[in-house]
């Protein structure tokens, strides 16, 4: 049902945890529905330098989180915002149709983290 690449990201997930003093934190999903992703990012000079996650969810959700955090590192905020669920799924070697929402959650959690960062920046001293 899952690709080898996905299974690799599930069994050896990258970037598990949270970044202390993160610049942005985003959470998406609800545990009653089965998946929650929490992504924290570090931003320097408009680029995401680090990303970590914690996820409550299925194998696909964990692999998506791992992949998203890998994909955003080194990207500008705009580049990161342009990451689509399809791109995440493709990087994982595809997702079964009923698991596509997991990649959606990944992209959404990331977007929220970036919004959180922008919000903090806007609110604080520029």
């Amino acid at each position: 049902m899952y690709s080898e690449k996905l299974m690799d990201h599930f069994t050896n997930p990258r970037n598990v945890g949270e970044i202390p003093n993160a610049d942005g934190i985003g959470e998406e999903g609800n545990p009653t529905c089965g998946d929650v992703m929490k992504i924290s990012i570090k931003v320097e000079d408009g680029r995401i330098t680090d990303a970590k996650f914690r996820t409550f969810g299925c194998g696909a959700a964990i692999a998506v989180s791992s992949m998203v955090t890998e994909m955003v590192k080194g990207k500008t905020l705009d580049e990161a915002l342009a990451i689509t669920k399809e791109a995440v799924a493709a990087e994982l070697g595809g997702l079964p149709p009923q698991k596509m929402h997991c990649s959606n959650l990944g992209a959404d959690a990331l977007r929220r983290a970036i919004e959180d960062y922008k919000g903090r920046k806007g609110a604080g001293p520029a």
Partner: peptide
């Protein structure tokens, strides 16, 4: 605090 499918896979 964890999900069943992930438990099954692991």
């Amino acid at each position: 605090f964890i999900e069943g499918e992930a438990m099954l896979l692991m």
